[in-house]
Design a protein around this nucleic acid. Structure first.
Lengths: 147, 147
DNA sequence: CTAAAACCTCATGTATACTTGAGGTCAATA
DNA sequence: TATTGACCTCAAGTATACATGAGGTTTTAG
């Protein structure tokens, strides 16, 4: 009886598919040892690592970004203090996402019924104001009215 | 001088690429009339429609869902009251997204340093409790400790 | 009227995050 | 030991949301 886990074990215990574990390994998010017969074997810490990946995904963080965060802990084993650091970084990202969605919702509230949706004037449009400098032709509703 | 708009016009005025307009048309989100020479011509109301699509996308709503919302207004022209109805529906969706992100963030807060991440016990894991019934083997940290 | 700019369709490419299947090997059990 | 289930690699498929390019046509400006 081994203390290591096979892919199947990890799949069952973590709730992700075997193919997903293969994929994560291919993308460099997890690593495995191999038996002489070339089968994957994992340390039990893989479960925590996979759990972290899933939580981050749920929060809308891309695998690329998750990978870069996990790479700060090259030991592959993420300690509680590492987890603390990561979760505080992700909390900041979550706050950003929450803030932008909240702002969008509030703009939606303030724009209800106004129907302007002007590239130049409407707070819902063109958040970067990139096109605001393009001169004339930005007012949508007014032009619709002109006809 | 025509009151209709070509794809190029719409692209410039709405800030999306011509290829995107083609794509939206292919997916049934927008429609066009054609000249005798088969070129697309749009009513000016297309600008509002495209604006709505972009705003919804920005809010994280998929094209499929946007399409289904827009299909309730088969006239292709979305009136301010239609817009009002849609924006209230989307506000509800935004509220849902905001709520789930906020809950995730709060769980993150409450879990900081605990490091449990147990499939069975941790509030961050397995939100559906799908695997919670799988019997033993759900406690990650405890098993890690056991070694 | 002619030439350039804009347009057309259709196929293919890009990125993300996986899943599925083929063809073959390894390992645990009866 | 034999067989079955689990595992391996590699290729291709799926879905979303577009961008790019080829090869050809239409529109517009001078």
């Amino acid at each position: 009886m081994d203390t290591t886990l096979s892919v199947g074990d990890v799949a069952k215990r973590s709730g992700v598919a075997v193919s997903t574990l293969h994929y994560y390994e291919e993308k460099g998010l997890i690593k495995s040892l191999r038996t002489l017969g070339n089968q994957r074997r994992y340390h039990r810490s893989i479960l925590r690592r996979v759990a972290i990946i899933r939580i981050a995904k749920q929060a809308g963080i891309s695998l690329r970004l998750i990978k870069s965060h996990l790479e700060k802990f090259p030991t592959h084993e993420v300690s509680p203090s590492d987890w603390q650091q990561m979760s505080s970084e992700w909390r900041a990202m979550l706050n950003d996402r929450i803030l932008s969605l909240t702002q969008l919702r509030d703009k939606l509230d303030s724009c209800i019924g106004c129907g302007c949706l002007s590239l130049r004037d409407c707070p819902l449009r063109n958040p970067e104001d990139k096109l605001g400098e393009q001169g004339p032709g930005a007012r949508i509703l007014e032009e619709e009215k002109q006809q």
